[in-house]
C-alpha cells in the first residue's frame, strides 16, 4: 500500500481519477458514451480527441526537458506548420484531393522538423541556453507564419483535411489514433532502446556524459527535432480542427500548458529522469480540467485562473517545505535540513 503511494505516478493518477469522479457525480452524462452510426461520442471521447495537439507537444517537450532543456517555440512551430499546410491546400487546384492534403501535411511537418533542428543546432552545437535559443523562434516564428499567410486567416474547404481532427476510424476519433501512435513511438524509442537512459544521463550531467562517450550533441539535437516535428503534427491537427490557419491563435500558450503537463506528470524541469506515462496523465488532467471548467459555465477566457491554482497546488504538493510543515504540525519532531549537496563538494557530513 505505502509502496504504491510512493510511486511517482501515484499523485497524478489519483488526481485524474478524482477529477473524473467529481465530474461523473456532478453530471452523470460526463461518463456516458453513445454510439451513433457506429461512432462513439461523449464527453470522455471529446477529451481524448481534443487532447491530441497538447499530447503531441507535451510528449516532445518531455524529451526536451529530460535533456535539461525547454522548447518555448512549439506554439510558433504549430502556427508555421498550420500556415504551410493551409497555404499549400489553398493554392492547389483541388483542395479536396487526398493526395494534395497528404503532400501539404508532409511538407508542413518537414518544415517543422527543420525548425526543430534549428533549435537543436542552437542548443547542442552553439551551446546557447535553451530558454533563449527557443525564444528566438518563439518570437520570430509567428511573424513567419503571418508572412506565409499574408497576414490573413487562410480558410479552406477540404474534407480529407477535416478528417484528421474530426474523422472517425473504427468508431473512435482519428485524432486519438495519432495520439496513441505518438505515445507508442516515443515509448518504443526511449524505453526499448537505450535512448531513454542516455537522454537522462545527458540531462543529469552533460559533461560527464560527453567524457563517457555519450553522443550528447546528437541526443540533444534529436530531442528538439522530435519536439519540432510533433509540434508540426499538432499544428496540422489544430488547423484541421478549425479548418483555418490562424497565425496568432494557433498554439497560443500551448508551450506553457505542455510544460505544465510534463511537470504534472512528475518530471522535473531540471532535467534527467522523465516519465512518458506521467506526461500522458498530465495532458489528460489538463484536458479534463478544461472540460470541467467549460461545464461550470466559466468563460474559457477565464480558465487561466483555474490553471494558476492548479500550478500552485501542484508545486505546493511537490515542495519538500510543505511536507516539513505538515510533519511538524502533526506532532513530528523538529526537522533538519537534509545534508545539502553543495557545488563540487562531497557530502562528507
Amino acid at each position: 500500500m505505502t509502496r504504491w503511494m510512493r510511486h511517482r505516478l501515484f499523485l497524478p493518477v489519483v488526481s485524474l481519477v478524482a477529477l473524473i469522479l467529481v465530474n461523473a457525480i456532478a453530471r452523470p452524462r460526463f461518463v456516458q458514451i453513445t454510439v451513433r452510426d457506429g461512432e462513439l461520442y461523449g464527453a470522455l471521447i471529446d477529451i481524448l480527441r481534443n487532447s491530441a495537439p497538447l499530447m503531441l507537444v507535451a510528449l516532445g517537450m518531455t524529451v526536451v526537458i529530460a535533456t535539461r532543456g525547454i522548447d518555448l517555440s512549439v506554439g510558433a512551430v504549430m502556427a508555421v506548420s498550420g500556415a504551410v499546410a493551409l497555404t499549400i491546400i489553398d493554392g492547389s487546384s483541388d483542395p479536396g484531393n487526398v493526395g494534395t492534403v497528404l503532400v501539404a501535411i508532409v511538407v508542413s511537418v518537414l518544415v517543422a522538423l527543420v525548425l526543430g533542428a534549428w533549435n537543436g543546432f542552437l542548443v547542442a552545437v552553439l551551446e546557447i541556453q535553451p530558454i533563449i535559443a527557443t525564444l528566438v523562434l518563439m518570437l520570430a516564428g509567428r511573424g513567419v507564419a503571418l508572412l506565409i499567410t499574408d497576414g490573413f486567416i487562410t480558410t479552406v474547404t477540404s474534407p480529407p483535411l477535416k478528417y484528421v481532427a474530426s474523422g472517425h476510424l473504427l468508431g473512435l476519433p482519428f485524432a486519438l489514433f495519432i495520439s496513441v501512435a505518438a505515445i507508442a513511438l516515443i515509448a518504443l524509442m526511449e524505453r526499448r532502446t537505450a535512448l531513454g537512459v542516455l537522454t537522462e544521463a545527458v540531462g543529469i550531467n552533460p559533461e560527464a556524459s560527453r567524457l563517457t562517450g555519450v553522443r550528447s550533441r546528437g541526443i540533444i539535437l534529436g530531442a528538439y527535432v522530435v519536439s519540432g516535428t510533433f509540434a508540426g503534427v499538432a499544428g496540422v491537427i489544430y488547423s484541421s480542427n478549425i479548418m483555418a490557419a490562424d497565425a496568432n491563435a494557433a498554439g497560443e500558450l500551448i508551450e506553457l500548458y505542455a510544460i505544465l503537463a510534463v511537470v504534472l506528470g512528475g518530471t522535473s524541469l531540471t532535467g534527467g529522469k522523465f516519465s512518458i506515462a506521467g506526461t500522458v496523465i498530465g495532458v489528460l488532467i489538463i484536458q479534463t480540467l478544461q472540460s470541467t471548467i467549460l461545464f461550470l459555465g466559466v468563460s474559457s477566457a477565464e480558465s487561466p485562473v483555474f490553471f494558476a491554482f492548479v500550478v500552485i497546488l501542484v508545486v505546493l504538493i511537490q515542495s519538500p517545505r510543505v511536507y516539513q510543515v505538515a510533519r511538524r504540525m502533526t506532532g513530528g519532531r523538529r526537522h533538519h535540513p537534509a545534508p545539502e549537496v553543495t557545488t563540487g563538494v562531497e557530502v562528507t557530513s
Binding site: L256, L260, L269, A301, E302, P304, V305, A308, V311, I312
Partner: peptide
C-alpha cells in the same frame, strides 16, 4: 519559470 507561469495564468484569467 513555473512560479511566474502561475502568475501569468492568474493575471490573464
Amino acid at each position: 519559470f513555473i512560479a511566474s507561469l502561475a502568475g501569468l495564468f492568474l493575471g490573464r484569467g
